[in-house]
Design a protein around this nucleic acid. Structure first.
Lengths: 110, 110
DNA sequence: ATCTGATAGATCGTGCAACGATACATTACC
DNA sequence: GGTAATGTATCGTTGCACGATCTATCAGAT
């Protein structure tokens, strides 16, 4: 399968990260891999986007960090959702579904 | 129905405009109304986004303009898709569907 | 012992697009 | 004559995704 990657539209990265962390707390590198994997290589998170996004989310209180050691025995920063982060995830998910449905409506218009 | 509007993610506006013009050639103001209407008031195109987008699309050759008179007897600039614009619309539609499906995959992940 | 690749985190500058505010002109209607 | 609706347009701000680049450590191969 040729993986034709797509630029993430502004704002969608936060949502993807939050959702990934809702499944399981994880470090940045793994989050990126996870998103790519679940989306069948369609979504690829660049490192130049990933780390600023994580810092942004932490600064806003949606996630919190904690240093640890990865499965590969490397120093890694583990992120977990906060309570407000979970709220944020729900709201953003809802907003995305709404947007997605609305755009689909326009695209399918006759 | 309370219309809770959503900020358009970067890039989606071009797609919406192109699609609207594929239905029927139209002037800017009407394009904006159309999108809003078809999407049940979810998508609202700001004028500060609309006109720059139209100029952008014209500059890139996806659409072409022609002055005319609106149904309300006002001076209006009518836009129509060009052939390359139609190609662009197809490609962007495909890309959006792909993205949308990929994000949905992540959001629905267990 | 050294080299290489994978893993992990981070920053910086650039580019681009959506937004809010604002401006202006014309038509229709009161 | 005043006001609302219609229609086009620009400007400055903001925010984010991206590519390039840097650092560090560990595992395995040479």
């Amino acid at each position: 399968m040729p993986d034709q990657r797509i630029d993430l539209p502004q704002g969608s990265l936060d949502l993807l990260i939050l959702k990934t962390l809702a499944l399981e707390q994880q470090h940045g590198w793994a989050i990126s891999e996870r998103i790519q994997q679940i989306s069948s290589n369609v979504l690829q998170v660049q490192q130049g986007s990933l780390y600023p996004a994580l810092h942004r989310l932490e600064r806003r209180g949606w996630i919190k960090a904690q240093w640890g050691v990865s499965e590969n025995n490397r120093r890694a920063k583990y992120y977990a959702l906060t309570r407000t982060g979970r709220k944020k995830l729900e709201a953003d998910t809802e907003a995305w579904r709404k947007l997605s449905a609305a755009v689909a409506q326009v695209l399918d218009a006759v």
